[in-house]
Design a protein around this nucleic acid. Structure first.
Lengths: 194, 194
DNA sequence: TGTACATCAGTGAACGCGCGTTCACTGATGTAC
DNA sequence: TGTACATCAGTGAACGCGCGTTCACTGATGTAC
């Protein structure tokens, strides 16, 4: 076999992938074990061969989501990333594409509100994910010479997350777009070279 | 009777008040009809004398939450409010007090993420609540002479909501406080008189 | 003022349903010889 | 190469439970006379 991973491992990944998508859209309570397994092309009973419990799945799905996010951060903020790369990340993060595809996007806008009531394992992983995101932005701002890099990074992340959350709340597409456009502009205005 | 409202009306208000608190903390799925009625000192069967269904309750509780928020906005942003009053609102919104009392605070940080999956009636009311908040900030900024008042208002609201959401996600109190402090400072920096 | 009665807010047993979880079983796969 | 067997990923019936909702009933309140 070209693929070293076993059949079971690949099945597990498939379940996790479906779970990560469903959770981003429907929240922690948004999908049942039965519905999830159906989406993965399996029956509900097999679930417990892969996960100890539903909580265990959620914790692992959170990890999975943030691994996807880390890949996105790597893509935009590589080794010598500067303000232009950060600006590009902002544009991507607050794009129409992200507005319309929550199932593949950042878990923060949809799920942050639920973190306080997540089971401990999932919550710990989620907090770590937030911290990674924040510190990678801070790193770029530090390298760009900002003295208040940490504060700016927190402020930027908060605005990005809040903006996408509010935009996705709006059923009117135009209103949602306006929120994204406004915040993209506002954030760009704060990324002027020193 | 001094109070013109009937006994039944007062009971309904009590249920709604408990529901609004529970929903802010636990989300739309965060409380059962039975548990809610128990909190209001009643038994579950009586619920349907006050509300058509659980969805009907949620929609009315959303209204109730935003009525509370509107009262807060009135308190800070009265007739001739300017930048100092807006700055005071920011400080209050991002205070330790609000961090620790989600059950009485703004519904946006905890519930915005769930709006896309709310039933239509609740969702409509929620969207209206967001728009009111945003436009009241915009109003102050317009009066203060900002040309880009609408954009600034959107940006500010997004950062406020995102910051509180992220802060409440953090189980470490210090980290949460830092997020609030950082964003308060960042927002104040954007409220300089023209 | 006292009695009879209507009203109706609230009670609590009961319902059907979907959930997470368990477990005895199936049947495809790959190894041993 | 062909047969016998062990392994184990996945199946599906069954469980107990909490949910939203219904409904016949209770008992306190206030009005009619």
């Amino acid at each position: 076999m070209a693929d070293k991973s076993t059949h079971k491992e690949r099945t597990r990944e498939r379940i996790l992938d479906e779970a990560a998508q469903a959770l981003r859209v429907g929240g922690t309570e948004g999908i049942s074990v039965g519905a999830l397994m159906k989406r993965a092309g399996l029956t509900h009973g097999g679930f417990y061969a892969h996960f100890q419990s539903r909580d265990d799945l959620v914790a692992n799905a959170v990890d999975r989501m943030f691994r996807d996010s880390a890949a996105m951060l790597d893509r935009f903020l590589g080794e010598h990333a500067g303000l232009p790369e950060l600006a590009a990340l902002v544009d991507y993060y607050l794009s129409e594409q992200m507005l319309l595809a929550p199932e593949r996007g950042c878990p923060l806008p949809g799920l942050s509100g639920e973190v306080p009531r997540m089971a401990p394992a999932a919550r710990t992983r989620f907090e770590r994910g937030i911290e990674v995101f924040r510190s990678r932005i801070a790193r770029v701002l530090t390298d760009a010479g900002y003295r208040d890099a940490e504060q700016r990074a927190t402020s930027m992340l908060a605005e990005m997350v809040g903006a996408m959350t509010l935009a996705r709340s709006m059923s009117d597409r135009r209103t949602a777009s306006d929120i994204l456009t406004n915040t993209r502009h506002a954030l760009h205005g704060r990324l002027t070279p020193l």
